[in-house]
Every structure is written in structure tokens, then in C-alpha cells.
């Protein structure tokens, strides 16, 4: 036996039909199928999901925290991008 760790996978769970998948956590697994099983056994034990996605953590392309200023700050002062300048019609719920 080697002590090499299995690759890390990120787990995304869809709680019910109509909702989108949300990040639930991560697990270690040797292959994709094992990752799916481990995600099922780790994150849906209490009836949390109807669908699971897993992906190798190494496959995720993430933004660089060092670049967060260039990435996110330009949006901070552009309040005109928020749809808050409209009158809300009567009878519209869930907004």
C-alpha cells in the first residue's frame, strides 16, 4: 500500500427539482464513480438531494484572490446595473 492520497472532488447537490446545484463540500475518491458514491453517502444521508454532480477539484478554474481588485471592484460603483430603479407592479411576489 502506498500512502498517496486519493484526488479531491468537489460535490454539488440539487436539493429538489427546479433548484440549481449548490456546492456541498468535498470528498476524496480514486475515480469518478467512487466519487459519486462517496458524495451520495456523505452528503445525502438525510434526504438532502435529488441530483449530485462531482468534479475533480483540479478541474475547476478559479479566480485568483490576488486579482480580486481588478476582478470585482469595478462593479462596486455601478449601481445602475441593479434593477432597483423600477416601480414594482402590484402582485409581483418573490422579488
Amino acid at each position: 500500500m502506498t500512502n498517496k492520497e486519493w484526488p479531491l472532488y468537489e460535490v454539488f447537490i440539487r436539493a429538489k427539482s427546479g433548484l440549481s446545484h449548490r456546492h456541498a463540500g468535498s470528498i476524496h475518491a480514486a475515480d469518478d464513480q467512487m466519487a459519486l458514491d462517496a458524495a451520495r453517502d456523505t452528503y445525502t444521508r438525510r434526504n438532502e438531494g435529488v441530483s449530485i454532480w462531482v468534479i475533480r477539484s483540479s478541474q475547476i478554474v478559479a479566480s485568483d484572490p490576488a486579482e480580486s481588485a481588478a476582478f470585482f471592484e469595478p462593479a462596486e460603483d455601478k449601481i445602475y446595473r441593479h434593477p432597483t430603479f423600477y416601480e414594482m407592479p402590484d402582485g409581483v411576489e418573490n422579488l
Binding site: W6, I27, H28, M34, D37, A38, D41, T42, R45
Partner: peptide, 11 residues
Amino acid sequence: PELEEELANAN
């Protein structure tokens, strides 16, 4: 030997 399998076995 592995946390994930541990959970599976207990389940």
C-alpha cells in the same frame, strides 16, 4: 481506511 467508505459502511 478511508472516511468516505467509513460513512458508506455505517450507512
